[in-house]
C-alpha cells in the first residue's frame, strides 16, 4: 500500500456521501463507520469528516482485554475479531479520537478499516472515492507532501504567521498507512 489518506476538514460540505458510500462497502453490513459532524452548530454549518487514524500503536487494541483488535501487515487497524470480542466497549473509551462504534444488538465493536479490501490493492476507500469536494483524498505520499507544503504557504499568504512555537500546527496532519 503506497497511498495515504489526506483529510482537509474545511473542504467538507456536509453532503454525507462518504457515509452512504461507507455503508455500501463489503463487510460493513450496511452500517457506516465514519463520521460527519458539525464543528459548532451554534456558530455555523461547517462540518468535518472523521475517520480512523490507523495508529501505529493503537490505544483501542491496547485496552482490549480479549486481544481482539488486530493490525494487518500493511498497518491497517481492523475491527475487533468477532470470535474474540467480548463486547466490553473499552476500545470506544480508550481511543483518543472517539472512532470505534459499538453494536449492542450483535454485541461487537466495528470501526473504520480504510476499506481494507480496496486499499490493500491501492484502490481508493469508498469514502474518498465519492467525496465531491476532495475533503477526503487517497493520494500518493509525494502528492500529500506537496499539498502540505502548499498549505503552509497558503497559511502565510492568508496573513496568519506561525511562530517558532506553533509552526508545526500550520502543517495539516496526514494519516493512513504508507511506506516510502
Amino acid at each position: 500500500m503506497n497511498k495515504v489518506m489526506y483529510l482537509e476538514f474545511e473542504r467538507c460540505i456536509g453532503c454525507r456521501a462518504c457515509q452512504a458510500a461507507c455503508r455500501e462497502c463489503g463487510g460493513h453490513d450496511a452500517k457506516e463507520r465514519n463520521y460527519v459532524e458539525y464543528v459548532n452548530f451554534f456558530e455555523n454549518r461547517q462540518t468535518y469528516p472523521m475517520m480512523c487514524m490507523q495508529c501505529k500503536d493503537p490505544a483501542c487494541a491496547k485496552v482490549c482485554p480479549a486481544n481482539a483488535i488486530q493490525i494487518t501487515e500493511e498497518g491497517v487497524v481492523l475491527s475487533a475479531m468477532e470470535d474474540k470480542c467480548i463486547g466490553c466497549r473499552n476500545c470506544t473509551f480508550g481511543c483518543p479520537f472517539g472512532i470505534p462504534k459499538f453494536d449492542f444488538e450483535e454485541n461487537k465493536m466495528y470501526k473504520c478499516d480504510m476499506c481494507y479490501d480496496r486499499t490493500k490493492h491501492d484502490i481508493s476507500p469508498m469514502c474518498a472515492s465519492v467525496c465531491p469536494s476532495d475533503a477526503i483524498r487517497f493520494i500518493d505520499h509525494d502528492e500529500m507532501m506537496d499539498l502540505r507544503r502548499r498549505r503552509t504557504q497558503m497559511n502565510l499568504i492568508e496573513g496568519k504567521k506561525p511562530s517558532e512555537n506553533d509552526k508545526w500546527e500550520y502543517v495539516p496532519e496526514f494519516f493512513g498507512v504508507y511506506s516510502d
Binding site: 476538514f9 470506544t92 481511543c95 483518543p96 472517539g98 472512532i99 500546527e169 495539516p172
Partner: peptide
C-alpha cells in the same frame, strides 16, 4: 477517556484546525 466519543472527535478537529 473522560470525554464522550463525539467530544473527543471534536477536540481532535479543533486542535488540527489550529
Amino acid at each position: 477517556a473522560e470525554y464522550c466519543p463525539a467530544c473527543r472527535r471534536k477536540l481532535r478537529v479543533m486542535s488540527q484546525l489550529n
